[in-house]
Amino acid sequence: MSEQHQLALQLSNVEVSYGGRPVLREVSFDIPTGVLAAIVGPNGAGKSTALKATLGLVPLTNGDVRILGTTLRANRRRVAYVPQQDLVTKDFPITAIQVVEMGRYPHRGWFRRLGADDDAAVAEAVERTGIGALLDEPLDELSGGQRQRVFLARALAQRADLLVLDEPFTAVDTRTEEALVDLLAELCADGATVLAVHHDLRTVAERFDHAVLLAGTVLAAGEVSDVLTTEALARAYGLAPRHTEPARAAR
């Protein structure tokens, strides 16, 4: 197997600008297959933008992204994305099970009925995320933690090889966060790769394998213990290191 194949994700010299203002400069990092990886960094570091650039949701002004050894276009079914909660239409009339079933659409297409293997994938995702009792509930009546379980179930139903999650634990209770991190770790043990934007540095240090420290550009990337050093954190946050990011300002 070539070295390329063992990398789930490879960003080289990625550059993104919003309205002429550069948000990411010379971003290069690799995520090996089968790790639980976090993108960390201060507010405005471009963490979400890095994920969106990876998934082709914002145009690159320069650079190159390789997913699972090739391009996103060749791998759409194998990549699952859990967007930030405020990018999902609020108050939309949809039930929990309908959201989970969306995870099968990349496989089944936009027109064909879901088949037995789709139903099996959905049932397994529902079981692993523990949302069996919520299936017919309207999404807008669920708590933050329940909603996030539903979105993770959609990603599981997709049976993807690369899961990309943007702030998956915002507005989520501690118990759910622990259950979800356990689940993500299980997925990695089964061979999937997980990349999450996450800002609780304590959880990152304890639970994640791999980290990318971002502040407009990559300050450090690699094994968590090598990345989250006092010196690197001081550089990223521009002050004495601390264990959690300050309360997020209104976006």
Partner: peptide, 24 residues
């Protein structure tokens, strides 16, 4: 009626649909 699944997914979660190959 024909595009219902696509319209629903993309109206609800445009980013998910974009990753699945339907530009926003």
């Amino acid at each position: 009626v024909v595009f219902f699944r696509l319209l629903r997914s993309a109206s609800f979660d445009p980013q998910f649909s974009a990753v699945a190959g339907v530009p926003t």
